[in-house]
Amino acid sequence: MNTLPAEAFDSEGFLRDLSQWDAEVAQQIATAENLQLTPAHWEVLNLLRAYYREFDSSPAMRPLVKYCAINLGADKGKSIYLMSLFPGSPAKIGSKIAGLPKPDNCL
């Protein structure tokens, strides 16, 4: 199992070197957030990574919801759905697990 040492993460748990990210690292970060990743989580995590490739930024909540609606359908493009997967702050926690930088526009 590939686990990274504590120094690989910043004080908020975001990966310092994004190139170190892989599926096992994602589960490691998720575990630190008390989350067990399911296919539903992965669907959103993959979408977050696609968003980052397309727009060179991590999304705030509003664009994430909209992006999910466009790509996963209206049922999943709802903040309540994303909150159920990543409780608290889906854009921030999702980006963290997806190995992306902290969203700029997220408190």
Binding site: F55, D56, R62, P63
Partner: peptide, 21 residues
């Protein structure tokens, strides 16, 4: 293409404007 300079790509960020309404 800002990747080689390690800068944020302004053009791609602007492409996300509609998602921010």
């Amino acid at each position: 293409d800002s990747q080689s300079l390690g800068k944020k790509n302004i053009g791609r960020q602007l492409a996300s404007l509609p998602l921010y309404d």
